[in-house]
């Protein structure tokens, strides 16, 4: 599994998009930016399906920090405080369930397709 991770921190949206483009591997075709908004202790949308190579960004819109972790794979994000973002590019097809390691009742899934 190859995962490219990027902590966006407080970067403005435009700068973030540029940074992600610059970091994208050559085979990653431009899928539209995908953002999962963390709001009211839920991942919105809770399940997303994206082509491989897509950068997925989480934005914490809660007043409480959250921290992402893979449910069945050992990946995790830094702590995301309010308004912080975290991006990860999923290079290989598969189903990637994840949760918040502070509030484990919060769960979501990224489904990565071959195309």
């Amino acid at each position: 599994m190859t995962i490219v991770r990027r902590m966006a921190g407080a970067l403005p949206g435009a700068a973030l998009a540029l940074a992600l483009l610059a970091a994208a591997p050559p085979q990653a075709r431009a899928a539209g930016p995908v953002e999962i908004r963390i709001d009211n202790f839920t991942f919105n949308p809770p399940v997303i399906t994206v082509p491989k190579g897509t950068a997925v960004t989480w934005l914490n819109a809660d007043d409480i920090p959250h921290k992402l972790a893979g449910s069945d794979r050992p990946w995790k994000s830094p702590v995301l405080d309010t308004d912080q973002r975290f991006s990860m590019t999923f290079a290989e097809p598969g189903t990637y369930p994840y949760f918040c390691s502070l509030h484990p009742h919060m769960t979501g899934t990224v489904v990565v397709t071959a195309e």
């Binding site: 484990p104 009742h105 769960t107």
Partner: peptide, 13 residues
Amino acid sequence: ALVNVMDLKAGGL
């Protein structure tokens, strides 16, 4: 004095 905030599991408490 217990610790119940570590090694939390997905979907759990």
